[in-house]
């Protein structure tokens, strides 16, 4: 492990160094209160100290709208869509988002491996950054600490006057070669505590979820839910998609596109003829939460909620996934927990 000291004034040098070698995506301000991963044009515009971006880096590997094929209506032929390998440097990614990419990698590699995702994912380099948990983050409760470097090629940890830059992989070393920095010989900076928690160790969560199917919490959470699907759209591990054809204005051809879809939307489970298999919001809420904490965990051994807090921060009704889980925990463990 090689650690360097990156003085605050030299962060722009790091960004410039990366930009000379790769396309760089990093957090930028978007409006007054929001942040977004965007292609970096100006090193000074990069923000490394941010609570969370609206969307995770998922959008680069599984774009919100993606062409699967282009068809020609005049002769019924088609050409496959051509996803481009990323090859980009993702600077300033939080540990929970790298953990989410790891889960998406699983989804698109296991079973029927999907070329589109795998091509777009190719050559991506991650330079993580630590974060200070706000009232929505609870990744520590699902095993992902702010200074967790898993999956990163390099990692930045904030100090009062700059950052510790840790090189973690040969790719990271190669990419940062030539950036002259002094070694860091100080202590590990103290970790920031979480404000939000799931009140039970991960090892006990599985059994609690197994018994949660008929719990009143699903109906309670649905009293204020408007079924807008925002929680699905901002989730870094949600990967469900819809596929639709779009005809060009010339009416001679068009494209088959996939777009993000969400299990909180009524149409998600609707079949031709009008049958909806998860008609009620309680059923949909249960499906969403158990997908993250049970169904996918049962087969992969890890929670699929990474504790980023996006669904809760973005929910117009203020529904908190951590509070839902804690309500189940409270009842299962016979510990009083306030209603959500």
């Amino acid at each position: 492990m090689v650690r360097f000291f990156l003085e605050r004034d030299r962060v722009a040098d790091l960004v410039k160094h990366l930009m000379e070698r790769r396309t760089v995506y990093a957090p930028h301000r978007k409006g007054r209160r929001s942040f977004a991963f965007a292609r970096t044009a100006d090193p000074a515009a990069v923000v490394l100290d941010y609570p969370r971006t609206l969307h995770s880096v998922k959008k680069f590997f599984l774009p919100p709208r993606e062409e699967l094929l282009r068809f020609d209506l005049t002769d019924d032929t088609f050409a496959a869509g051509e996803p481009e390998p990323s090859g980009a440097a993702f600077l300033g990614v939080h540990s929970y988002d790298v953990a989410a990419v790891r889960r998406l990698d699983h989804n698109f590699s296991a079973g029927n491996a999907e070329r589109n995702y795998l091509v777009r994912r190719q050559g991506a380099v991650f330079i993580g950054v630590g974060f200070e948990p706000d009232k929505f983050h609870f990744s520590g409760s699902v095993g992902i600490e702010p200074d967790d470097t898993a999956g990163c090629d390099a990692f930045l940890t904030k100090l009062l006057d700059g950052y510790v830059l840790e090189i973690l992989t040969p790719t990271g070393r190669e990419l940062l070669k030539g950036l002259e920095l002094p070694p860091y010989e100080g202590n590990d900076p103290p970790a920031h505590p979480f404000q939000q928690h799931i009140y039970v160790p991960q090892s006990r969560l599985g059994r609690i979820m197994d018994k949660s199917y008929e719990h009143p919490v699903w109906a309670e959470a649905s009293r204020t839910c408007v079924g807008c699907g925002t929680c699905n759209l901002v989730c870094p591990t949600c990967y469900c998609f819809d596929v639709q054809d779009h005809v060009d204005i010339t009416a001679t051809g068009g494209s088959r596109e996939r777009t993000w879809d969400g299990c909180m939307l009524r149409g998600f489970s609707e079949v031709a003829g009008g049958e909806v298999f998860r008609e009620g919001l309680p059923e949909r809420q249960r499906h969403r939460v158990l997908r993250k904490f049970k169904y996918l965990s049962d087969t992969t051994g890890v929670p699929w909620c990474v504790g980023c807090g996006r669904c809760t921060a973005a929910c117009p009704a203020g529904i908190s996934i951590a509070n839902i889980v804690n309500r189940l925990v409270g009842d299962a463990e016979r510990t009083p927990v306030a209603p959500i």
């Binding site: 469900c240 998609f241 499906h287 997908r291 049970k294 996918l296």
Partner: peptide, 24 residues
């Protein structure tokens, strides 16, 4: 069983019954 399906290959998520993909 019938469910909504888009991809048929266990990726798009529509056809799930709990953790089971009906298309798989």
């Amino acid at each position: 069983l019938e469910r909504r399906m888009k991809c048929g290959v266990g990726k798009c998520g529509h056809c799930q019954i709990n953790g089971s993909y009906v298309c798989q």
